[in-house]
Design a protein around this nucleic acid. Structure first.
Lengths: 248, 248
DNA sequence: CGCTCACTTGAACCTGATCAAATAAGGTGG
DNA sequence: CCACCTTATTTGATCAGGTTCAAGTGAGCG
Protein backbone atom coordinates (compact mmCIF):
# COMPACT_ATOMS: atom_id res chain seq x y z
CA UNK A 1 0.00 0.00 0.00
CA UNK A 2 2.94 2.29 -0.55
CA UNK A 3 2.96 3.58 -4.08
CA UNK A 4 -0.37 4.20 -5.73
CA UNK A 5 -0.49 5.42 -9.27
CA UNK A 6 -3.52 7.54 -9.94
CA UNK A 7 -6.22 5.42 -11.49
CA UNK A 8 -6.27 5.92 -15.22
CA UNK A 9 -7.55 4.14 -18.29
CA UNK A 10 -4.91 1.88 -19.81
CA UNK A 11 -4.86 -1.14 -21.99
CA UNK A 12 -5.72 -4.31 -20.16
CA UNK A 13 -2.28 -5.48 -21.20
CA UNK A 14 -0.20 -5.87 -18.09
CA UNK A 15 3.35 -5.90 -19.30
CA UNK A 16 4.66 -7.11 -15.95
CA UNK A 17 2.93 -10.46 -16.27
CA UNK A 18 2.47 -10.67 -19.99
CA UNK A 19 5.58 -12.77 -20.27
CA UNK A 20 3.97 -15.54 -18.28
CA UNK A 21 1.13 -15.84 -20.76
CA UNK A 22 -0.94 -17.31 -18.00
CA UNK A 23 -4.08 -16.91 -16.04
CA UNK A 24 -5.87 -13.61 -16.33
CA UNK A 25 -2.82 -11.67 -17.32
CA UNK A 26 -2.51 -14.11 -20.13
CA UNK A 27 -5.72 -12.77 -21.53
CA UNK A 28 -3.64 -9.97 -22.82
CA UNK A 29 -2.21 -12.54 -25.21
CA UNK A 30 -5.64 -13.56 -26.33
CA UNK A 31 -6.30 -10.04 -27.42
CA UNK A 32 -3.08 -8.60 -28.65
CA UNK A 33 -2.88 -10.24 -32.10
CA UNK A 34 -5.46 -7.91 -33.54
CA UNK A 35 -4.30 -4.69 -32.01
CA UNK A 36 -7.49 -2.89 -32.91
CA UNK A 37 -9.06 -5.17 -30.39
CA UNK A 38 -7.48 -3.84 -27.21
CA UNK A 39 -9.80 -3.13 -24.35
CA UNK A 40 -9.74 0.10 -22.48
CA UNK A 41 -10.29 -0.74 -18.86
CA UNK A 42 -9.75 1.13 -15.63
CA UNK A 43 -6.76 -0.29 -13.86
CA UNK A 44 -4.66 0.64 -10.86
CA UNK A 45 -1.22 -0.58 -9.92
CA UNK A 46 0.04 -0.90 -6.37
CA UNK A 47 3.18 -2.00 -4.59
CA UNK A 48 3.08 -3.74 -1.23
CA UNK A 49 6.15 -4.58 0.86
CA UNK A 50 6.74 -8.11 2.14
CA UNK A 51 4.61 -9.26 5.06
CA UNK A 52 2.03 -6.58 4.57
CA UNK A 53 -1.62 -7.42 3.99
CA UNK A 54 -2.99 -6.81 0.53
CA UNK A 55 -6.61 -7.16 1.48
CA UNK A 56 -8.66 -8.32 4.45
CA UNK A 57 -11.72 -10.50 4.77
CA UNK A 58 -14.03 -7.64 5.61
CA UNK A 59 -13.03 -5.37 2.76
CA UNK A 60 -15.79 -5.05 0.25
CA UNK A 61 -13.86 -5.17 -2.96
CA UNK A 62 -14.98 -3.40 -5.99
CA UNK A 63 -11.60 -4.36 -7.28
CA UNK A 64 -10.24 -7.59 -8.73
CA UNK A 65 -6.52 -7.83 -7.97
CA UNK A 66 -3.96 -9.65 -10.08
CA UNK A 67 -0.43 -10.33 -8.96
CA UNK A 68 2.12 -8.82 -11.31
CA UNK A 69 5.28 -9.67 -9.43
CA UNK A 70 6.23 -11.30 -6.15
CA UNK A 71 4.59 -14.04 -4.08
CA UNK A 72 1.48 -13.75 -1.94
CA UNK A 73 -0.78 -16.10 0.00
CA UNK A 74 -4.51 -16.33 0.71
CA UNK A 75 -4.82 -17.27 4.32
CA UNK A 76 -7.63 -18.05 6.73
CA UNK A 77 -7.03 -17.04 10.33
CA UNK A 78 -8.54 -19.12 13.10
CA UNK A 79 -9.57 -17.57 16.36
CA UNK A 80 -6.69 -19.25 18.20
CA UNK A 81 -4.24 -17.53 15.87
CA UNK A 82 -3.50 -20.66 13.92
CA UNK A 83 -3.55 -20.10 10.20
CA UNK A 84 -4.33 -22.08 7.08
CA UNK A 85 -2.93 -21.00 3.75
CA UNK A 86 -5.40 -21.82 0.98
CA UNK A 87 -3.07 -21.03 -1.87
CA UNK A 88 0.07 -19.27 -2.87
CA UNK A 89 -0.32 -16.58 -5.50
CA UNK A 90 2.37 -16.19 -8.13
CA UNK A 91 2.84 -13.56 -10.81
CA UNK A 92 -0.01 -13.68 -13.27
CA UNK A 93 -2.47 -15.12 -10.75
CA UNK A 94 -5.86 -13.66 -10.14
CA UNK A 95 -6.25 -13.42 -6.37
CA UNK A 96 -9.57 -15.23 -6.58
CA UNK A 97 -11.89 -15.83 -9.49
CA UNK A 98 -14.80 -15.55 -7.07
CA UNK A 99 -14.05 -11.84 -6.83
CA UNK A 100 -15.33 -11.52 -10.36
CA UNK A 101 -18.82 -12.13 -9.06
CA UNK A 102 -18.85 -11.22 -5.43
CA UNK A 103 -17.30 -8.30 -3.60
CA UNK A 104 -16.40 -10.36 -0.58
CA UNK A 105 -13.60 -12.64 0.35
CA UNK A 106 -13.54 -14.89 3.36
CA UNK A 107 -9.79 -14.95 3.64
CA UNK A 108 -7.07 -12.40 3.63
CA UNK A 109 -4.29 -12.00 1.13
CA UNK A 110 -0.85 -11.20 2.35
CA UNK A 111 2.36 -10.39 0.58
CA UNK A 112 5.22 -12.83 1.12
CA UNK A 113 7.78 -10.89 -0.87
CA UNK A 114 7.35 -7.35 -2.09
CA UNK A 115 4.38 -7.56 -4.39
CA UNK A 116 3.21 -5.48 -7.31
CA UNK A 117 -0.40 -6.02 -8.21
CA UNK A 118 -3.02 -4.39 -10.35
CA UNK A 119 -6.70 -4.17 -9.79
CA UNK A 120 -9.43 -4.08 -12.36
CA UNK A 121 -12.87 -2.80 -11.65
CA UNK A 122 -15.18 -5.75 -11.28
CA UNK A 123 -17.99 -4.32 -13.36
CA UNK A 124 -15.60 -3.53 -16.23
CA UNK A 125 -14.02 -6.95 -16.18
CA UNK A 126 -17.37 -8.67 -15.91
CA UNK A 127 -18.67 -6.71 -18.85
CA UNK A 128 -15.74 -7.70 -21.07
CA UNK A 129 -16.57 -11.29 -20.22
CA UNK A 130 -19.68 -11.06 -22.35
CA UNK A 131 -18.18 -9.14 -25.19
CA UNK A 132 -14.88 -11.04 -25.49
CA UNK A 133 -15.17 -14.82 -25.63
CA UNK A 134 -11.39 -15.22 -25.42
CA UNK A 135 -11.43 -13.50 -22.07
CA UNK A 136 -14.30 -15.63 -20.98
CA UNK A 137 -12.27 -18.72 -21.83
CA UNK A 138 -9.19 -17.45 -20.06
CA UNK A 139 -11.18 -16.76 -16.95
CA UNK A 140 -13.01 -20.04 -16.91
CA UNK A 141 -9.67 -21.78 -17.29
CA UNK A 142 -8.32 -19.81 -14.32
CA UNK A 143 -11.35 -20.77 -12.34
CA UNK A 144 -10.99 -24.48 -13.11
CA UNK A 145 -7.34 -24.41 -12.18
CA UNK A 146 -8.11 -22.68 -8.92
CA UNK A 147 -10.65 -25.32 -8.02
CA UNK A 148 -8.41 -28.20 -9.09
CA UNK A 149 -5.69 -26.95 -6.82
CA UNK A 150 -8.11 -26.61 -3.92
CA UNK A 151 -9.33 -30.16 -4.46
CA UNK A 152 -5.78 -31.44 -4.59
CA UNK A 153 -5.03 -29.70 -1.33
CA UNK A 154 -8.04 -31.34 0.27
CA UNK A 155 -6.72 -34.74 -0.71
CA UNK A 156 -3.24 -33.86 0.53
CA UNK A 157 -4.47 -32.65 3.90
CA UNK A 158 -6.96 -35.45 4.32
CA UNK A 159 -4.92 -38.41 3.20
CA UNK A 160 -1.19 -37.80 2.98
CA UNK A 161 1.74 -37.84 5.36
CA UNK A 162 3.81 -34.83 6.30
CA UNK A 163 6.62 -35.86 3.93
CA UNK A 164 4.25 -36.23 1.03
CA UNK A 165 2.48 -32.95 1.72
CA UNK A 166 5.67 -30.95 1.85
CA UNK A 167 7.21 -32.59 -1.20
CA UNK A 168 4.02 -32.08 -3.17
CA UNK A 169 3.79 -28.44 -2.20
CA UNK A 170 7.31 -27.83 -3.40
CA UNK A 171 6.83 -29.76 -6.61
CA UNK A 172 3.58 -27.95 -7.34
CA UNK A 173 5.24 -24.60 -6.85
CA UNK A 174 8.16 -25.70 -9.00
CA UNK A 175 5.72 -26.67 -11.72
CA UNK A 176 3.87 -23.37 -11.57
CA UNK A 177 7.11 -21.41 -11.55
CA UNK A 178 8.43 -23.37 -14.47
CA UNK A 179 5.29 -22.53 -16.49
CA UNK A 180 6.26 -18.93 -15.86
CA UNK A 181 9.84 -19.47 -16.90
CA UNK A 182 10.94 -18.85 -13.34
CA UNK A 183 13.03 -22.00 -12.89
CA UNK A 184 16.37 -23.10 -14.27
CA UNK A 185 17.43 -26.66 -14.89
CA UNK A 186 21.12 -27.37 -14.33
CA UNK A 187 23.26 -29.76 -16.33
CA UNK A 188 22.73 -32.34 -13.58
CA UNK A 189 19.00 -31.88 -14.23
CA UNK A 190 18.47 -30.33 -10.83
CA UNK A 191 15.73 -27.68 -10.73
CA UNK A 192 16.56 -24.32 -9.28
CA UNK A 193 14.27 -21.46 -8.28
CA UNK A 194 13.76 -18.48 -6.04
CA UNK A 195 11.92 -19.67 -2.97
CA UNK A 196 10.91 -16.92 -0.58
CA UNK A 197 8.76 -19.09 1.70
CA UNK A 198 9.62 -19.31 5.38
CA UNK A 199 9.14 -22.64 7.06
CA UNK A 200 6.11 -21.25 8.83
CA UNK A 201 4.50 -20.61 5.42
CA UNK A 202 5.08 -24.23 4.53
CA UNK A 203 3.62 -25.24 7.87
CA UNK A 204 0.56 -23.04 7.40
CA UNK A 205 -0.03 -24.47 3.95
CA UNK A 206 0.41 -28.12 4.85
CA UNK A 207 -1.44 -28.21 8.15
CA UNK A 208 1.75 -28.97 10.09
CA UNK A 209 3.82 -27.18 12.72
CA UNK A 210 6.94 -25.21 11.85
CA UNK A 211 8.95 -27.52 14.08
CA UNK A 212 7.91 -30.57 12.14
CA UNK A 213 8.50 -28.84 8.81
CA UNK A 214 12.03 -28.13 9.91
CA UNK A 215 12.58 -31.79 10.74
CA UNK A 216 11.19 -33.02 7.45
CA UNK A 217 13.25 -30.54 5.44
CA UNK A 218 16.39 -31.64 7.27
CA UNK A 219 15.50 -35.17 6.36
CA UNK A 220 15.07 -34.22 2.69
CA UNK A 221 18.39 -32.43 2.76
CA UNK A 222 20.12 -35.35 4.40
CA UNK A 223 18.66 -37.58 1.67
CA UNK A 224 20.19 -35.38 -1.01
CA UNK A 225 16.77 -34.52 -2.42
CA UNK A 226 16.83 -30.77 -2.04
CA UNK A 227 19.00 -27.86 -1.06
CA UNK A 228 17.64 -24.68 0.45
CA UNK A 229 19.71 -21.63 1.05
CA UNK A 230 19.41 -17.94 0.82
CA UNK A 231 15.76 -17.90 -0.22
CA UNK A 232 16.30 -20.25 -3.08
CA UNK A 233 15.46 -23.89 -3.58
CA UNK A 234 17.22 -26.52 -5.61
CA UNK A 235 15.52 -29.83 -6.22
CA UNK A 236 18.66 -31.92 -6.60
CA UNK A 237 16.90 -35.19 -7.37
CA UNK A 238 13.57 -34.45 -9.04
CA UNK A 239 12.81 -38.11 -9.70
CA UNK A 240 13.50 -39.16 -6.13
CA UNK A 241 11.60 -36.19 -4.81
CA UNK A 242 8.59 -37.06 -6.95
CA UNK A 243 8.76 -40.56 -5.59
CA UNK A 244 8.51 -39.19 -2.06
CA UNK A 245 5.60 -37.00 -3.12
CA UNK A 246 3.60 -39.81 -4.62
CA UNK A 247 4.20 -42.69 -2.30
CA UNK A 248 0.93 -44.65 -2.16
CA UNK B 1 -27.50 -46.45 -14.79
CA UNK B 2 -30.72 -48.41 -14.70
CA UNK B 3 -33.57 -46.44 -16.23
CA UNK B 4 -32.72 -44.08 -19.05
CA UNK B 5 -35.44 -42.02 -20.62
CA UNK B 6 -34.74 -41.28 -24.22
CA UNK B 7 -33.17 -37.88 -24.59
CA UNK B 8 -35.76 -35.33 -25.59
CA UNK B 9 -36.19 -31.59 -25.52
CA UNK B 10 -37.96 -30.40 -22.39
CA UNK B 11 -38.14 -27.22 -20.43
CA UNK B 12 -35.12 -26.63 -18.30
CA UNK B 13 -37.50 -26.73 -15.38
CA UNK B 14 -36.69 -29.70 -13.24
CA UNK B 15 -39.72 -30.29 -11.10
CA UNK B 16 -37.92 -32.69 -8.81
CA UNK B 17 -35.63 -30.04 -7.45
CA UNK B 18 -37.62 -26.93 -8.18
CA UNK B 19 -38.95 -26.94 -4.66
CA UNK B 20 -35.48 -26.33 -3.28
CA UNK B 21 -35.08 -23.13 -5.25
CA UNK B 22 -31.36 -23.64 -5.07
CA UNK B 23 -28.26 -24.02 -7.08
CA UNK B 24 -28.66 -24.72 -10.74
CA UNK B 25 -32.10 -26.18 -10.45
CA UNK B 26 -33.06 -22.94 -8.85
CA UNK B 27 -32.47 -21.28 -12.17
CA UNK B 28 -35.80 -22.65 -13.14
CA UNK B 29 -37.20 -20.12 -10.69
CA UNK B 30 -35.30 -17.32 -12.31
CA UNK B 31 -37.00 -18.08 -15.55
CA UNK B 32 -40.48 -19.24 -14.79
CA UNK B 33 -42.12 -15.90 -13.93
CA UNK B 34 -42.29 -14.91 -17.59
CA UNK B 35 -43.36 -18.17 -19.08
CA UNK B 36 -42.60 -16.97 -22.59
CA UNK B 37 -39.05 -17.10 -21.46
CA UNK B 38 -38.66 -20.82 -20.93
CA UNK B 39 -35.63 -22.40 -22.44
CA UNK B 40 -35.83 -25.47 -24.57
CA UNK B 41 -32.84 -27.52 -23.72
CA UNK B 42 -31.85 -31.10 -24.27
CA UNK B 43 -32.10 -32.96 -21.01
CA UNK B 44 -31.89 -36.54 -19.89
CA UNK B 45 -33.01 -38.07 -16.63
CA UNK B 46 -31.41 -41.12 -15.03
CA UNK B 47 -31.83 -43.21 -11.91
CA UNK B 48 -28.88 -44.81 -10.17
CA UNK B 49 -29.15 -47.25 -7.26
CA UNK B 50 -27.23 -46.65 -4.03
CA UNK B 51 -23.50 -47.34 -4.09
CA UNK B 52 -23.29 -47.25 -7.83
CA UNK B 53 -20.97 -44.89 -9.66
CA UNK B 54 -22.59 -42.02 -11.51
CA UNK B 55 -19.52 -41.01 -13.43
CA UNK B 56 -15.82 -41.79 -13.44
CA UNK B 57 -12.74 -39.61 -13.73
CA UNK B 58 -11.90 -40.75 -17.23
CA UNK B 59 -15.33 -40.17 -18.70
CA UNK B 60 -15.26 -37.28 -21.08
CA UNK B 61 -18.52 -35.62 -20.23
CA UNK B 62 -20.49 -33.79 -22.72
CA UNK B 63 -23.11 -33.75 -20.04
CA UNK B 64 -23.57 -31.61 -16.97
CA UNK B 65 -25.37 -33.60 -14.27
CA UNK B 66 -27.59 -32.17 -11.57
CA UNK B 67 -28.83 -34.17 -8.62
CA UNK B 68 -32.62 -34.25 -8.48
CA UNK B 69 -33.08 -36.55 -5.51
CA UNK B 70 -30.90 -38.56 -3.19
CA UNK B 71 -27.38 -38.07 -1.87
CA UNK B 72 -24.14 -38.53 -3.78
CA UNK B 73 -20.46 -37.83 -3.18
CA UNK B 74 -17.53 -36.66 -5.30
CA UNK B 75 -14.61 -38.77 -4.28
CA UNK B 76 -10.94 -38.99 -5.13
CA UNK B 77 -9.41 -42.46 -4.97
CA UNK B 78 -5.79 -42.84 -3.98
CA UNK B 79 -3.68 -45.67 -5.31
CA UNK B 80 -3.63 -47.40 -1.92
CA UNK B 81 -7.41 -47.57 -2.00
CA UNK B 82 -7.85 -44.83 0.54
CA UNK B 83 -10.45 -42.28 -0.44
CA UNK B 84 -11.10 -38.61 0.07
CA UNK B 85 -14.60 -37.24 -0.33
CA UNK B 86 -14.45 -33.71 -1.71
CA UNK B 87 -18.11 -32.95 -1.23
CA UNK B 88 -21.51 -34.42 -0.67
CA UNK B 89 -24.07 -33.64 -3.33
CA UNK B 90 -27.66 -32.98 -2.30
CA UNK B 91 -30.79 -32.50 -4.38
CA UNK B 92 -30.47 -29.39 -6.48
CA UNK B 93 -26.68 -29.52 -6.60
CA UNK B 94 -24.74 -29.30 -9.78
CA UNK B 95 -22.16 -32.09 -9.67
CA UNK B 96 -19.43 -29.62 -10.46
CA UNK B 97 -19.55 -26.16 -11.93
CA UNK B 98 -16.24 -26.87 -13.66
CA UNK B 99 -18.11 -29.25 -15.94
CA UNK B 100 -19.71 -26.23 -17.53
CA UNK B 101 -16.40 -25.41 -19.14
CA UNK B 102 -14.43 -28.60 -19.30
CA UNK B 103 -15.45 -32.11 -20.21
CA UNK B 104 -13.21 -33.68 -17.61
CA UNK B 105 -13.47 -34.38 -13.95
CA UNK B 106 -10.65 -35.53 -11.77
CA UNK B 107 -12.84 -37.32 -9.30
CA UNK B 108 -15.66 -39.78 -9.48
CA UNK B 109 -19.20 -39.29 -8.36
CA UNK B 110 -20.95 -42.07 -6.56
CA UNK B 111 -24.49 -42.49 -5.37
CA UNK B 112 -24.93 -42.85 -1.62
CA UNK B 113 -28.68 -43.41 -1.72
CA UNK B 114 -30.67 -44.11 -4.84
CA UNK B 115 -30.16 -41.03 -6.94
CA UNK B 116 -32.14 -39.40 -9.70
CA UNK B 117 -30.17 -36.93 -11.73
CA UNK B 118 -30.55 -35.05 -14.98
CA UNK B 119 -27.92 -34.04 -17.42
CA UNK B 120 -27.87 -31.01 -19.62
CA UNK B 121 -25.73 -30.73 -22.69
CA UNK B 122 -22.79 -28.53 -21.88
CA UNK B 123 -22.93 -26.53 -25.07
CA UNK B 124 -26.64 -25.78 -24.56
CA UNK B 125 -26.19 -24.74 -20.98
CA UNK B 126 -23.15 -22.66 -21.80
CA UNK B 127 -25.03 -20.91 -24.55
CA UNK B 128 -27.91 -19.97 -22.25
CA UNK B 129 -25.32 -18.42 -19.96
CA UNK B 130 -24.78 -15.65 -22.45
CA UNK B 131 -28.38 -15.11 -23.34
CA UNK B 132 -29.87 -15.31 -19.86
CA UNK B 133 -28.18 -13.16 -17.22
CA UNK B 134 -30.33 -14.69 -14.47
CA UNK B 135 -28.86 -18.08 -15.28
CA UNK B 136 -25.42 -16.59 -15.35
CA UNK B 137 -25.98 -15.24 -11.86
CA UNK B 138 -27.35 -18.52 -10.56
CA UNK B 139 -24.36 -20.37 -11.88
CA UNK B 140 -21.79 -17.94 -10.57
CA UNK B 141 -23.47 -18.19 -7.20
CA UNK B 142 -23.21 -21.99 -7.38
CA UNK B 143 -19.56 -21.64 -8.31
CA UNK B 144 -18.79 -19.39 -5.36
CA UNK B 145 -20.58 -21.68 -2.95
CA UNK B 146 -18.72 -24.69 -4.26
CA UNK B 147 -15.41 -22.95 -3.80
CA UNK B 148 -16.31 -21.63 -0.35
CA UNK B 149 -17.13 -25.12 0.79
CA UNK B 150 -13.86 -26.45 -0.59
CA UNK B 151 -11.93 -23.74 1.21
CA UNK B 152 -13.76 -24.47 4.43
CA UNK B 153 -12.86 -28.12 4.10
CA UNK B 154 -9.21 -27.23 3.63
CA UNK B 155 -9.26 -25.32 6.89
CA UNK B 156 -11.05 -28.16 8.65
CA UNK B 157 -8.60 -30.79 7.45
CA UNK B 158 -5.58 -28.63 8.02
CA UNK B 159 -6.36 -27.14 11.39
CA UNK B 160 -9.14 -28.84 13.29
CA UNK B 161 -9.46 -31.86 15.55
CA UNK B 162 -11.45 -34.96 14.76
CA UNK B 163 -14.33 -33.83 17.00
CA UNK B 164 -14.53 -30.47 15.31
CA UNK B 165 -14.35 -31.91 11.81
CA UNK B 166 -17.14 -34.37 12.40
CA UNK B 167 -19.38 -31.90 14.18
CA UNK B 168 -18.83 -29.33 11.43
CA UNK B 169 -19.59 -31.83 8.71
CA UNK B 170 -22.88 -32.71 10.34
CA UNK B 171 -23.82 -29.11 11.01
CA UNK B 172 -22.97 -28.12 7.45
CA UNK B 173 -25.11 -30.89 6.08
CA UNK B 174 -27.91 -29.94 8.48
CA UNK B 175 -27.70 -26.37 7.22
CA UNK B 176 -27.81 -27.38 3.57
CA UNK B 177 -30.69 -29.76 4.19
CA UNK B 178 -32.59 -27.12 6.07
CA UNK B 179 -32.24 -24.72 3.11
CA UNK B 180 -33.97 -27.41 1.12
CA UNK B 181 -36.70 -27.87 3.68
CA UNK B 182 -35.38 -31.32 4.46
CA UNK B 183 -35.09 -30.93 8.23
CA UNK B 184 -37.65 -30.74 11.02
CA UNK B 185 -37.24 -28.89 14.29
CA UNK B 186 -38.91 -30.53 17.29
CA UNK B 187 -40.58 -28.70 20.16
CA UNK B 188 -37.37 -29.22 22.16
CA UNK B 189 -35.60 -27.42 19.30
CA UNK B 190 -33.74 -30.54 18.30
CA UNK B 191 -33.03 -30.79 14.58
CA UNK B 192 -34.05 -33.95 12.79
CA UNK B 193 -33.14 -35.19 9.32
CA UNK B 194 -32.62 -38.17 7.06
CA UNK B 195 -28.97 -39.11 7.23
CA UNK B 196 -27.96 -41.88 4.87
CA UNK B 197 -24.21 -41.59 5.46
CA UNK B 198 -22.31 -44.61 6.72
CA UNK B 199 -19.51 -44.00 9.15
CA UNK B 200 -17.03 -44.77 6.42
CA UNK B 201 -18.45 -41.85 4.41
CA UNK B 202 -17.86 -39.57 7.35
CA UNK B 203 -14.35 -40.95 7.67
CA UNK B 204 -13.63 -40.42 3.98
CA UNK B 205 -14.89 -36.86 4.16
CA UNK B 206 -13.03 -35.85 7.32
CA UNK B 207 -9.70 -37.52 6.67
CA UNK B 208 -10.16 -39.93 9.58
CA UNK B 209 -10.52 -43.70 9.97
CA UNK B 210 -13.91 -45.36 10.38
CA UNK B 211 -12.76 -46.69 13.73
CA UNK B 212 -12.09 -43.25 15.08
CA UNK B 213 -15.32 -41.88 13.66
CA UNK B 214 -17.16 -44.56 15.58
CA UNK B 215 -15.43 -43.54 18.79
CA UNK B 216 -16.16 -39.85 18.33
CA UNK B 217 -19.80 -40.47 17.49
CA UNK B 218 -20.17 -42.62 20.60
CA UNK B 219 -18.70 -39.74 22.58
CA UNK B 220 -21.19 -37.31 21.03
CA UNK B 221 -24.03 -39.66 21.84
CA UNK B 222 -22.84 -40.12 25.39
CA UNK B 223 -22.73 -36.32 25.73
CA UNK B 224 -26.37 -36.07 24.66
CA UNK B 225 -25.44 -34.02 21.60
CA UNK B 226 -26.83 -36.22 18.88
CA UNK B 227 -28.81 -39.34 18.24
CA UNK B 228 -28.31 -41.52 15.19
CA UNK B 229 -30.53 -44.40 14.33
CA UNK B 230 -32.04 -45.95 11.34
CA UNK B 231 -30.40 -43.68 8.78
CA UNK B 232 -31.61 -40.57 10.49
CA UNK B 233 -29.86 -37.99 12.61
CA UNK B 234 -31.18 -35.86 15.43
CA UNK B 235 -29.09 -33.01 16.72
CA UNK B 236 -30.45 -32.98 20.26
CA UNK B 237 -28.46 -30.02 21.48
CA UNK B 238 -27.71 -27.73 18.53
CA UNK B 239 -26.11 -25.05 20.69
CA UNK B 240 -23.82 -27.49 22.44
CA UNK B 241 -23.00 -29.18 19.18
CA UNK B 242 -22.09 -25.87 17.58
CA UNK B 243 -19.84 -25.18 20.50
CA UNK B 244 -17.99 -28.43 19.85
CA UNK B 245 -17.76 -27.52 16.17
CA UNK B 246 -16.27 -24.10 16.73
CA UNK B 247 -13.96 -24.64 19.61
CA UNK B 248 -10.95 -22.36 19.11
C1' DC C 1 -29.32 -70.44 8.18
C1' DG C 2 -25.30 -68.53 6.88
C1' DC C 3 -23.05 -64.32 4.82
C1' DT C 4 -21.59 -60.07 4.39
C1' DC C 5 -21.32 -55.46 5.82
C1' DA C 6 -21.61 -52.00 9.54
C1' DC C 7 -20.46 -50.78 13.87
C1' DT C 8 -18.18 -51.17 18.59
C1' DT C 9 -14.49 -51.61 21.83
C1' DG C 10 -9.94 -52.27 23.67
C1' DA C 11 -4.82 -52.55 23.39
C1' DA C 12 -0.57 -51.29 21.32
C1' DC C 13 1.65 -48.28 18.39
C1' DC C 14 3.21 -44.14 15.71
C1' DT C 15 3.16 -39.76 13.45
C1' DG C 16 3.27 -35.39 14.35
C1' DA C 17 2.42 -31.88 18.28
C1' DT C 18 4.18 -29.53 22.20
C1' DC C 19 7.70 -27.84 25.14
C1' DA C 20 12.18 -26.11 25.77
C1' DA C 21 16.64 -24.46 24.88
C1' DA C 22 20.27 -23.26 21.82
C1' DT C 23 21.92 -21.27 17.50
C1' DA C 24 21.65 -18.54 13.44
C1' DA C 25 19.97 -14.58 10.70
C1' DG C 26 18.15 -10.34 9.82
C1' DG C 27 17.20 -5.46 10.78
C1' DT C 28 17.67 -1.16 13.33
C1' DG C 29 19.54 2.66 15.58
C1' DG C 30 23.76 4.61 17.03
C1' DC D 1 30.41 -1.32 11.55
C1' DC D 2 28.70 -2.67 15.96
C1' DA D 3 25.36 -3.71 19.64
C1' DC D 4 20.95 -5.14 20.34
C1' DC D 5 16.66 -7.07 19.43
C1' DT D 6 13.58 -9.75 17.07
C1' DT D 7 12.47 -13.45 13.98
C1' DA D 8 13.92 -18.12 11.90
C1' DT D 9 15.70 -22.48 12.25
C1' DT D 10 17.50 -26.59 14.57
C1' DT D 11 17.44 -30.35 17.76
C1' DG D 12 16.06 -33.26 21.55
C1' DA D 13 12.69 -34.98 24.99
C1' DT D 14 8.10 -35.90 26.03
C1' DC D 15 3.21 -36.10 25.00
C1' DA D 16 -1.18 -37.09 22.67
C1' DG D 17 -4.55 -37.52 19.05
C1' DG D 18 -5.51 -40.87 15.81
C1' DT D 19 -4.20 -45.22 13.53
C1' DT D 20 -3.78 -50.03 13.32
C1' DC D 21 -4.82 -54.47 14.71
C1' DA D 22 -7.91 -57.66 16.53
C1' DA D 23 -11.98 -59.64 18.19
C1' DG D 24 -16.69 -59.46 18.99
C1' DT D 25 -21.63 -57.93 18.19
C1' DG D 26 -25.40 -56.85 15.34
C1' DA D 27 -28.47 -56.27 11.41
C1' DG D 28 -30.03 -57.05 6.82
C1' DC D 29 -30.40 -60.33 3.07
C1' DG D 30 -30.41 -64.25 -0.22
Amino acid sequence: MTATEPSRPVEITCTACEAYGLSLCGLTKALSPSSANHIQIQQTSRTVPARRIICREQDLHDAVPIICSGWAASVVMLSDASRQILSFLLPGDLVSTALLFEPRSHCLVEAITDVVYRTFKRSDLKATLFTHPEIFDKLSKAWIEEKDRADQLIVDLGRRTADERIARLMLNLAERLSQRGMTRTTETSAIEMEFPLRQHHIADATGLTPVHVSKVLSEFRRGGLIKISDRSLIILDPAGFRRVAHMR
